[in-house]
């Protein structure tokens, strides 16, 4: 019935290479319901692409309005004065702060997150491991503003001891020298970001470690390997790309984090050699704290700095995608 009419409606097989495709397309679009539904779902997909394009276009347009009037160098100026005439602003300090705080967060969070993921999958007794995994899952959902509040009111006062200690023993390096100011500095921000991205990296790494083929581990055990050797020989090599992409996810979060940084950091527009002295800034923090007093032009300038952040996160995400793509995809039931 239906099938026969379909076949008669389908175009006759022609010499074109795309004949089969066309036949299939014609068949699936032959009913009005199918056409509408395909149109809707394809439209939703296209809408996503349009939104991404619109983000890039609109940000670039507003940014160009601001940058064209900038009397400093947008990339190298150590200043953010959008209310004077002529305005002078630049993102050098913000880029430095964003990258430094994210690097600190990654250095602290990735090893610990991998260790916790290993703890859950390979070390903890099964029941404890399950509970810990569940709790860390929930912690990944805690809003960043709560981390920010906790960081500003609880973490910051507790940093005094650590800062004094670092200054005493490592102050000679310059990186860890401290002027006894409030510990609202890049290091504190980095530590808070590390705590924030820890659950995300742990969750993804845990999933990857769980997918390690049992056979690999059992083979290693059968050869007399200790638990650590099993992990080093079969778990870590299998999970490496997964851990890297998990770290990239965390890095993306750390780069774009607004509230946790805005509450903890006491910003200025200088690049400090020491990580312990308060000051510096990040893109997102600068936008959040300058926004409410900004004029129309000031907002355009902030949008320009947001564009730089957007580009940085795009690069990081693109890199993560490439790394994941290299790994053979675990396919579901539907190919």
């Amino acid at each position: 019935m239906d099938i026969s009419t379909q076949n008669t409606e389908a175009p006759p097989p022609g010499p074109q290479p795309t004949a089969v495709d066309r036949k299939r397309a014609a068949r699936s679009a032959s009913r009005p319901g199918d056409r509408i539904f395909l149109g809707l779902s394809r439209g939703a997909g296209i809408l996503l692409l349009v939104i991404m394009a619109a983000i890039a276009v609109f940000l670039t347009y507003r940014a160009s309005l601001a940058i064209s009037k900038d009397h400093g160098n947008f990339l190298t100026t150590f200043e953010w004065n959008t209310n004077i005439d002529p305005p002078v602003f630049g993102v050098a300090v913000l880029a430095f702060g964003t990258i430094v705080s994210s690097i600190i967060a990654m250095v602290l969070a990735v090893p610990v997150a991998v260790a916790i993921a290993l703890f859950i999958t390979h070390y903890a007794p099964r029941r404890i491991g399950g509970t810990v995994a569940y709790v860390i899952d929930l912690l990944a959902a805690v809003p960043s503003i709560v981390y920010g509040l906790w960081g500003a009111l609880i973490l910051v006062p507790h940093m005094n001891g650590l800062f004094g200690w670092l200054n005493d023993y490592l102050g000679w390096t310059g990186v860890f020298s401290w002027n006894d100011g409030p510990p609202r500095s890049m290091l504190t921000v980095g530590i808070l970001l590390a705590i924030m991205i820890l659950p995300i990296i742990t969750n993804v790494s845990r999933e990857v470690f769980r997918q390690v083929p049992q056979m690999h581990e059992e083979a290693a055990l059968a050869l007399g390997a200790t638990r650590w050797e099993v992990i080093r020989m079969s778990v870590l090599p299998f999970g490496r790309s997964g851990v890297i992409s998990a770290s990239m996810l965390g890095l993306g979060r750390a780069l774009g984090e607004t509230m946790a940084v805005a509450t903890v950091l006491s910003p200025d527009f200088l690049i400090h050699a020491s990580l312990l002295n308060a000051g510096g800034g990040t893109f997102a923090q600068n936008i959040a704290s300058k926004f409410s007093e900004a004029t129309q032009f000031g907002r355009d300038a902030l949008i320009a700095s947001g564009l730089v952040l957007f580009v940085i996160t795009l690069l990081v995400n693109g890199a993560a995608r490439l790394i994941i793509a290299r790994r053979a995809e675990y396919s579901g039931a539907n190919a």
Binding site: L48, L49, I55, Y61, A284, A320
Partner: peptide, 21 residues
């Protein structure tokens, strides 16, 4: 690909996009 990229958009950038409109 762009869904993956979009996952990584910082929330403040999404805010700036609507703000620019």
């Amino acid at each position: 690909f762009f869904v993956d990229v979009m996952t990584g958009i910082p929330s403040i950038v999404a805010g700036l996009f609507i703000l620019s409109i």
